[in-house]
Design a protein around this nucleic acid. Structure first.
Lengths: 222, 222, 222, 222
DNA sequence: CATGAATGAGGTTTCATTCAT
DNA sequence: AATGAATGAAACCTCATTCAT
């Protein structure tokens, strides 16, 4: 499966440096970059993008604002990096769930339960990833991740179609619709309600209903 | 059916500055407010929210920046008003399509074809309403409209359930998922592709596929 | 006794008018001007100068902002007028007390008790007149009234000197000092404490102490 | 003697922007803050508060407008700081004069001569500190300094009372009245006359007369 | 006389980014 | 490699004043 290379964002800019690039140097640099991205991610998760100013990210990462520009070309790249860092975990979990399933029906179940249960378990992060206002420069990253989700889903659906498990369809379209549907069904509990804790029962009910929706939508025979 | 009262947003602020409220006065005021909201909407549609500064909106509306504050309490309210102005039309069209249909299957078809055909016909506006980054103050309005869409859809679905046309289900959840699915299926053509013109054939194909998706998802028997 | 002509401020600007100036016209005009000044005074008393915008004064006076400029050349004149309107009453009361007294000692007592008791009785107004920040254009009026107070006091003191009741002194200087002292002794109760109600006992104590201060300061033999 | 801590105003805001606080860093920061406050003070003295815009203060201090906000949280704090910077010197001089005197009579003389001679020597500054219109945000600082003057005077008077040098009295009240009297006696020469140069003889005469006033007022036996 | 919508200058404030050290 | 003080462009918003009606 081919994904958009979100990781490239984390690479930041080409670092012109006076120092020869030794393994030690590179390791330190990677550590720094990671600790900065991690600091940004933590701020996002805790209080949203508005609080993630360059200064506050630097403070959180324990370094100066200036140093940050050694690792990221500008603020947008930093925030995209932080977004990708967090969203990448989610995408990986969903991708794993899709790949582990034997049938397309199981894959759909796995997709729904993985997506929803992780979102409810980390509601604050999910809110940031799915619903919060983003700077225009970062919104592109969100849309790019939606595309990646759709691609992962489409690939699995296509395998299902090829295996005759589900009807012929534009699997790309179905996948984009499903990706949107999963997001749409979470707005009320995660964003509107303002809650951040959810019981197992709530999660189970939501997952059950959305699984039915998804199975029907892709044409799994009951 | 009860919708969130988005129109109230257009009312702007309490106009304590108007000393006496004559019909003539009110009409002029309403005209001005509408022309300002329209200018903002045009700017959004053409070049996104970032370009909609108070100054540029005023210039576009042919008045001074200060006058905006007679009709809107602050910039966020102005932009919310512009968003609501545009989004309200779309919501009304969709609501009409839902209400005119006799069966729930027809309602679903109407929903899908109305939503998609209007979006493809006004792709730039649809992009602004559905995908572009919004200031945090305005994003709330987008989410509020999503809720209104879901409410309109849920009401029609529930009627279908009550009439025995579709299976028992949490119609609120199904509606939110569908609302998200419709949005999700448009990202690629409307936002990612960068195109703003679409052929009838393209629209028809998309509508056809999404209608199948929707009918399956809500459980309309084939 | 000659006072600065504070009333001239109330005259506002020369009113060029298309109408012949009949007695009726003049009366109406005077009424309007007075009602506007009164509205401004009321706003000052209730909520200070910051709240006395041209618009709010007009609203309070039941007329349009534009009309206000028929009677006052600009906002500063309006506020000076309102200040003079209120301060003039106080000055008149003090002047009366000074003039009614037979001896300079009684005059001093009358000055102190009139000034303080009126200030405590109308603490909100006194705060505005004595302590609140004023626009630079209006502050001149406050200083001008201080001069008028000093002039009234000086005249009475000079009579006392001439009558041999108190020692030779620069009565102008003594008067200015006393005027400042009266203001100074009220800052704590009227402004700092934030209170607006004072018991008779409090007033009596303050008056008693300040009377002693004043008698000593001007040299009334005990 | 406990004074209100006006110096805290100069501290500006919590400088959370300074990452590590080294002695070198602190000294530089203090220098900058002082140079900005000094620029503001100079502007006030020369042309009043209205001219002390953030931009002009920055220009005078030789830095950018934005930098001011590193040292002061907002414009009002900056102006309060500048006011306190200047007023603090005056208060310190007066306090010193009060403390150096052996008897309460000498203290009163020292108070009067210090206050008046310094005011006449720096008439433009004195005008700004005592009489000029101030923004509401800064006027609070002026009133706070009046309170501090009164406190310093009251403490010395109370010592005089305790030593039996002057009669029993509410020394707090007497002090507030004296503080007001000193201010009141300077309005004519410093503000109304528009002059900024005064001869030794003028100063001596004013001081002599006010010393008599003050001695009488507090009850020093002749 | 009276209205009140319209003007528009100008101030404060934020924060991503740079660069001398 | 690291610092963090300094920059400076923009944006929002207020409100005294005017003028067409």
């Amino acid at each position: 499966m081919r994904l958009l290379n979100h990781d490239s964002i984390l690479a930041g800019k080409e670092r012109s440096t006076l120092y020869r690039s030794t393994p030690r140097t590179r390791q330190n640099a990677a550590d720094r970059a990671a600790s900065i991205a991690e600091a940004a991610r933590a701020l996002l998760t805790e209080s949203g993008f508005a609080s993630a100013t360059v200064k506050s990210v630097a403070a959180r990462a324990g370094c100066s604002p200036g140093l940050l520009y050694t690792y990221f070309p500008d603020r947008a790249a930093l925030l995209r990096g932080a977004f990708a860092h967090a969203a990448g975990h989610e995408l990986a979990a969903v991708t794993r769930a899709l790949e582990e399933a034997e049938t397309v029906a199981e894959a759909a179940s796995g997709l729904v339960s993985t997506f929803i249960s992780r979102a409810l378990a980390g509601a604050r992060l999910a809110d940031a990833l799915l619903f919060e206002a983003l700077p225009a420069d970062v919104e592109t990253e969100r849309l790019s991740f939606r595309t990646s989700y759709a691609a992962a889903i489409a690939a699995r659906l296509q395998a299902g179609v090829d295996a005759g498990e589900i009807p012929e369809q534009d699997t790309g379209l179905t996948a984009r619709a499903l990706s949107g549907a999963l997001s749409g069904c979470l707005q009320e509990p995660i964003h509107d309600s303002g809650r951040s804790e959810f019981s197992e029962a709530e999660a189970a009910a939501l997952i059950a209903d959305m699984t039915v929706f998804t199975h029907r939508a892709i044409g799994v025979s009951p």
